[in-house]
Amino acid sequence: MLQLNAETVHTCRDTIKRLSGEDVSRCFQCGKCTAGCPVAIDMDVTPNQVMRLAQINGRERVLASSTIWLCLSCETCSTRCPADIDIAKVMDTLRKISVAEGYPSPEPAITGFHRLFLASVEKYGRLNELELSIKHNLAIMKPTKDIRLAVGLFSKGKINPFGGKVKDRERVKKIFAESQRFVKVYPESIEREAE
């Protein structure tokens, strides 16, 4: 049961507003976001339900939802929202809160892909497409996935096995090291990190 009370009912809305500048309480539940979302059918909580839950501090359900990870950031919802809420930006924000607060990902393939993607960029400064695909397929225990495709790409000279590299890799490492401290924006999560 979701308990509504004066102390906490606006907490989720306020956090989102502080982090993204977007005010979810403007939402009046027309449902146009869900109607236009290409992946709404795959989500456990629809986009308009995310907005509603955010309005009534249903934060656990939102932060554990697959929705925030299935959002493709295609901005269809933001473009058509009659209340001018940048819903895609709200999803971005919710993802970050979810990570910072240590919610397990209901979409490990997607979150894992993001991690590997960023690891590649951290290592080389640029994305190594081949390495990323191999590592991802190993991680999801399907090492032969897309193998035919890879052979095809290779024969067409579209795969650069060594990938490009940035000369100033030290700086890239620093960027990652410094930026990772983004979690400090969230007081709750700092405490969790400290523990």
Binding site: Q29, C30, G31, K32, C33, T34, A35, G36, C37, A40, I41, V45, T46, N48, Q49, T76, R80, P82
Partner: peptide, 28 residues
Amino acid sequence: TRGRVSKIYQKSDKLVVRGADTLAGVPV
């Protein structure tokens, strides 16, 4: 159906209306 329509497009001689049923929680 409770939900605002997001898009209408022509498909042959039909019009595909893409909406949502927010009560059922599904796009329709």
